Simulated assay, not measured.
Amino acid sequence: MPGRHTGDSKRYDQRGWQQVGNYTVVALPGDGIGPEITDVALKVLDRVVELVPGLDVTVDSHDAGAERWRSTGVAMPDETFDACESADAILMGAIGLPDARHPDGREVNGDVIFRLRFALDLFAGIRPVRSLPGVADTLAGGKPIDYVVVRENVEGLYASRTGGTNVRGEVATDTIVITANGTRKVSEIAFGLATKRGGRPLDGRKMVTCVDKANVLSSYAFFRSVFDQVADEHTDIERDHVYVDAMTAFQVQRPDHYDVVVAENMFGDIISDLAAATVGGLGLAASADVGYDHGMFQPAHGSAPDIAGRDLANPTAMVLSTAMLLDWLGERHDDKAALEAAAKIDAATLKVLAEGTTVTADLGGSASCTAMGDAIVAALDGQA
């Protein structure tokens, strides 16, 4: 396809990485609306690669997900995992279907998403939330929203996803796992993000908020204590502590008080979805699952099988996730071309949202998924 570099030669920088500007991205379109929004994202990616000199991206698409599991019994074959492990980044559409489940009731999507998160140590789930132009305020009062939820991704309660017990259908247990190393790593990511941001909307103060239940459970008290150790090393960034139940209220009542928020796996999952709802819904929610060596980028929403195949899906979250992918590559490799491409996609998407004439039904418009994608591509072309 246009804009995708397919040459055989590979060049490497002094760190042993593939040369800046020349990347391989594995695409996992997945299930439901996944293929539709992935098609849009790849069109946007193709176009921005054509527009930004010095940027080459090879896209390697693989079949993984619930539909594949239904037909073959395997949601993600080893060769697909190997391709993901070798790629510079992973772009995922939407994996899973509500009725595709293992005998114990777990959805098949975990065979893909959790395998990649745990095996590639994608320990930080980064989910930005911000007020968007042209999108009606969900909250009364209209306070500005611009913060990032950083979710610990490979520990917490979800570490027990295949290790819990169910005794005769009478007693079921899962065990929460909190380690000092895992908590330190995700806290360091949170403070690193706060260093680069402009602070919370309320007053510009740079702050990292730890969300936990330290008043009740020793595991969360331990999470908080490790967070505080990391905070002690970042004296230029303020720290804050909020219990998770209070946090859900504060996200609605005073969202402008937050800059970067860090939480255990399950709590991070819950509050990041609530955060998305406060700015217009999951259709707008981009996300990144990153570690020291690998990165996976996907919309925070699910596969929406009820509208699959009808060209109705909102592609915004998928397109903004693609921008996050390029931004991550740019930061990782000190690549100005990738950073420029990320900024261009972000600006083009915000322009389409602000104009409001070519947006999908969930945003009050009547455009198809494809038409909204085409509008974003046109906005890219229209940038000076």
Score class of each variant (00 low, 15 high):
1 M>A: 14
1 M>P: 06
2 P>M: 11
7 G>T: 10
7 G>V: 09
9 S>F: 05
9 S>E: 10
13 D>S: 05
15 R>G: 08
18 Q>Y: 04
21 G>Q: 00
23 Y>F: 13
24 T>P: 01
36 E>T: 13
37 I>S: 02
42 L>Y: 05
44 V>K: 13
44 V>D: 10
46 D>N: 15
50 E>K: 12
50 E>V: 08
51 L>S: 14
53 P>L: 05
58 T>F: 11
61 S>R: 11
64 A>Q: 02
65 G>Q: 06
66 A>C: 05
74 V>S: 07
74 V>E: 10
76 M>F: 11
78 D>G: 04
80 T>N: 08
80 T>F: 10
81 F>P: 11
82 D>K: 13
82 D>R: 07
83 A>H: 08
85 E>D: 08
90 I>M: 12
90 I>L: 10
91 L>R: 10
91 L>I: 14
91 L>K: 05
96 G>K: 09
98 P>G: 12
103 P>V: 02
105 G>I: 09
108 V>E: 02
109 N>F: 11
112 V>N: 01
117 R>M: 00
121 D>R: 14
124 A>P: 14
128 P>V: 11
129 V>K: 02
130 R>F: 14
132 L>E: 06
138 T>R: 11
146 D>M: 01
148 V>F: 03
157 L>M: 14
158 Y>M: 13
164 G>A: 11
167 V>P: 08
168 R>M: 07
169 G>L: 09
171 V>Q: 09
173 T>G: 03
175 T>N: 06
176 I>F: 10
176 I>A: 11
176 I>M: 08
176 I>W: 06
177 V>A: 07
184 R>I: 08
191 F>A: 03
195 T>H: 08
195 T>W: 04
203 D>R: 09
204 G>S: 09
206 K>H: 05
207 M>Y: 04
209 T>K: 06
210 C>A: 10
219 S>Q: 13
221 A>T: 06
222 F>Q: 07
230 V>D: 00
234 H>W: 00
236 D>G: 02
237 I>C: 04
237 I>F: 01
256 D>E: 15
257 H>N: 04
259 D>A: 08
261 V>D: 04
265 N>Y: 04
266 M>I: 15
266 M>P: 02
268 G>V: 03
269 D>R: 07
271 I>D: 00
272 S>Y: 04
276 A>N: 04
277 A>W: 00
279 V>R: 05
279 V>A: 03
287 S>G: 12
291 G>S: 00
292 Y>V: 11
292 Y>F: 06
293 D>V: 03
297 F>R: 01
307 I>T: 08
308 A>D: 06
311 D>Y: 09
314 N>V: 02
314 N>I: 08
317 A>T: 12
323 A>H: 01
331 E>I: 06
341 A>L: 06
342 A>M: 08
344 K>V: 02
344 K>P: 01
345 I>S: 03
346 D>T: 15
351 K>E: 15
351 K>G: 02
352 V>H: 07
352 V>R: 10
356 G>V: 12
357 T>W: 02
358 T>P: 07
358 T>A: 05
359 V>E: 03
361 A>D: 10
363 L>I: 13
368 S>P: 12
369 C>Y: 07
370 T>E: 14
373 G>I: 15
375 A>H: 05
376 I>C: 04
377 V>Q: 04
378 A>D: 14
381 D>Y: 12
383 Q>G: 14
